[in-house]
C-alpha cells in the first residue's frame, strides 16, 4: 500500500512540475492515439455501416471477421506492421519504421475492427427501426448508411471512445513498430514498460496514474459534450 501512496505523490509531482519530458511524451501519446482513432473512424464507421445495411456477398464472413478482430493481439499487429514496414519488407521503401507514422498505422489497424464491429451493431439496431421508413422515402442502401451514421452519432461517440481506450492503453504494437526511441517514439505506455524494466516501479506506476487520469479526462469531456448536445436533440 505504501507504494501506491508513493506513486501518487510522484505522479502529482510529475504533473504539477510540468516536467518537459513528460509533457512531450504525453503530447506524442495523444497525437498518435487521436490520429489513429480519427483514421480508424474514417475507415471503420463506413465499413460498419456497410456491414449493417449492405446486402453483398461475403457480408456475414465480414461481420464474423470484424467481431473476431476486435481482440487482435497488439503484439501480433505490431509484428505484422513491423515486417511490412521493415526495409526488407514490401513497404520498406517508405522508411517510416520507428516513426510516429508507423505507430499510428499499427494502432489504426488495431482499432478499425473495434470501431467497425461496434458501429455495425449500433447501425443494424437503428436499421431495424428506420429501415422501412428510409426505403419508403426512396433512400438507397449507401445513402441510408450515411443517414444512420449521423442519426446514431451519440452512440457512435461511445464506440469511438472504446477505440481510443484501446489505442491509448496498448503497448505491444507501438513498442515494436515505434522502437520506444527516446524523444521520437516514446509514448506513455512504452515509458511505463521501460521504467518497469528499470525497476523504478513507483515512477512507472506514477506514469500509469497520469495516463489513466488523461484517458478519464478525455472520456469525461466527451461524455459531458454528448450529454449537453443530446439533451437538445433527443
Amino acid at each position: 500500500m505504501q507504494e501506491f501512496g508513493r506513486s501518487g505523490a510522484v505522479a502529482l509531482g510529475l504533473v504539477t512540475g510540468l516536467d518537459s519530458d513528460l509533457l512531450a511524451i504525453v503530447a506524442l501519446s495523444l497525437q498518435v492515439s487521436l490520429s489513429a482513432v480519427a483514421m480508424a473512424a474514417l475507415i471503420g464507421l463506413p465499413l460498419g455501416a456497410a456491414a449493417a445495411v449492405g446486402r453483398f456477398p461475403g457480408r456475414r464472413p465480414l461481420i464474423v471477421l470484424l467481431n473476431a478482430f476486435m481482440g487482435l493481439p497488439p503484439v501480433v499487429v505490431g509484428l505484422v506492421i513491423y515486417l511490412l514496414l521493415s526495409r526488407a519488407g514490401p513497404l520498406g521503401h517508405l522508411g517510416i519504421l520507428f516513426t510516429p507514422a508507423a505507430m499510428i498505422l499499427a494502432q489504426t489497424v488495431l482499432i478499425v475492427p473495434i470501431i467497425a464491429a461496434l458501429s455495425r451493431q449500433v447501425i443494424e439496431d437503428a436499421w431495424v427501426e428506420y429501415g422501412e421508413q428510409l426505403r419508403s422515402l426512396g433512400s438507397g442502401p449507401a445513402r441510408s448508411g450515411f443517414t444512420l451514421l449521423w442519426d446514431t452519432r451519440f452512440s457512435l461517440l461511445t464506440v469511438i471512445l472504446a477505440g481510443l481506450g484501446r489505442a491509448s492503453a496498448e503497448v505491444g504494437a507501438v513498442m515494436i513498430v515505434g522502437g520506444n526511441i527516446d524523444g521520437v517514439t516514446r509514448v506513455m505506455t512504452t515509458t511505463i514498460a521501460l521504467e518497469t524494466s528499470k525497476g523504478d516501479l513507483p515512477l512507472a506506476l506514477a506514469l500509469g496514474i497520469v495516463l489513466i487520469t488523461l484517458v478519464f479526462a478525455l472520456n469525461a469531456s466527451a461524455y459531458l459534450i454528448k450529454e449537453a448536445v443530446q439533451r437538445r436533440h433527443g
Partner: peptide, 21 residues
C-alpha cells in the same frame, strides 16, 4: 529538437498524408 518537430508536425487525417509525411 527533433521531438519538438515531431510533436508539432500536424498529422493529416488521411492515411496518405501520414505515410508520406
Amino acid at each position: 529538437m527533433a521531438l519538438k518537430h515531431c510533436v508539432h508536425t500536424r498529422i493529416g487525417a488521411a492515411a496518405a498524408a501520414v505515410i508520406a509525411a
